[in-house]
């Protein structure tokens, strides 16, 4: 809003139109989100009666959250399923992100700074798999995991999530920029082997890229829906929160009265919104943790949103 300080004389019609239309779009984006977050703090009765005024903000109370949480986490044969799903998501998302970092850093370094015959081929495969939507491989991945009899278990999901070509690309760009060829050659002449050069020099300067790869991998893994749906649907206790939310929707009296009638818990819109809100908190946490590095690496990270 710096324009305000410069006084009214610089407000040409074009400028006014630009600022107004940008604020209008911002409102279209923000109002639904504000209403949705407010929904997580509202009561079923308040929503039913339409009380609470604008976006139901007047209906917000902490006691509503406590009630809604008891319903959300009461879901399942013995309750507590939602907590279990959150834990599962943490396991596969963090496990997959750690694998992605461990694999991406040395691979990105090798592609950036070592000459070997298959280099261009590996780079091409990485780029193509990076830009393709990852859902096209889910059915083949299911067939593979089914063949080894591991459907319904968490470890294959984390392992598959470890394959993160975007992370390899980020590392590749990182080492192209931060590690000059001359540095590698100097280290070689000092008697270091190729792996040692990476280990003693490459890893020293990789804090930035470790955070970036881990962040993007964690977010992609946490929000992944189709892979856990195909691999984990058969085992209710081993599901992730992304497909768990789908189950909660399916058990809501709003959309499926017959199923909901047989349940102890009642999942109306405030409960669904609260479950969604809680499922987003880990993403918020990693975003705040990685923020400093994201801004610095914006140009690199912007290649794939």
């Amino acid at each position: 809003m710096a324009a305000h300080t410069r006084g009214i004389e610089s407000w040409s019609p074009g400028r006014l139109a630009r600022v107004v239309s940008m604020l209008f779009v911002a409102a279209i984006f923000l109002v639904p989100i504000a209403g949705f977050v407010a929904m997580a703090f509202r009561s079923n009765d308040g929503v039913e009666n339409g009380s609470g005024g604008f976006l139901g903000l007047g209906d917000i109370a902490w006691s509503n959250v406590r009630y809604s949480w008891s319903q959300v986490n009461g879901f399942g044969p013995d309750g507590g399923l939602f907590t279990r799903w959150m834990t599962n998501s943490l396991i596969v998302a963090a496990g997959g992100a750690i694998l992605a970092v461990v694999a991406a850093l040395p691979a990105g370094y090798a592609m950036a700074r070592l000459r070997f015959r298959a280099r261009r081929a590996v780079l091409l495969i990485t780029l193509v798999t990076m830009v393709m939507p990852n859902t096209v491989l889910v059915i083949p991945l299911f067939l593979e995991v089914n063949a080894v009899g591991a459907v319904g278990q968490l470890w294959p999901v984390a392992l598959i999530m470890g394959f993160f070509p975007f992370g390899v690309y980020l590392s590749y760009i990182h080492y192209l920029i931060t590690m000059p060829k001359e540095l590698v050659e100097a280290a070689r002449l000092d008697g270091l082997g190729e792996v040692s050069v990476f280990w003693w020099i490459g890893l020293r300067i990789s804090k930035q890229v470790v955070v970036l790869v881990a962040f993007f991998a964690f977010v992609a893994n946490w929000t992944n829906f189709f892979l856990p749906l195909a691999l984990l649907s058969s085992n209710q206790r081993n599901q992730t929160v992304s497909i768990g939310l789908q189950q909660l929707i399916g058990a809501s009296p709003l959309f499926n009265p017959t199923v909901a009638a047989g349940l102890d818990v009642k999942l109306y819109m405030p409960q669904l919104a609260l479950a969604t809100f809680i499922s987003m908190l880990p993403l918020l946490a990693v975003f705040l943790g990685a923020q400093r590095f994201l801004i610095r690496g914006e140009t690199v990270g912007a290649v794939k949103g």
Binding site: L99, P106, A107, L114, R115, T129, P140, E144, E194
Partner: peptide, 25 residues
């Protein structure tokens, strides 16, 4: 030795590429 080093550094990624990409296809 550069080629050997490269493949050694690539090996974790290649294993994941096989599991998550090549073998399923």
């Amino acid at each position: 030795s550069e080629t050997r080093g490269a493949w050694l550094l690539l090996s974790p990624y290649v294993v994941l590429l096989l599991i998550g990409g090549i073998v399923p296809v």
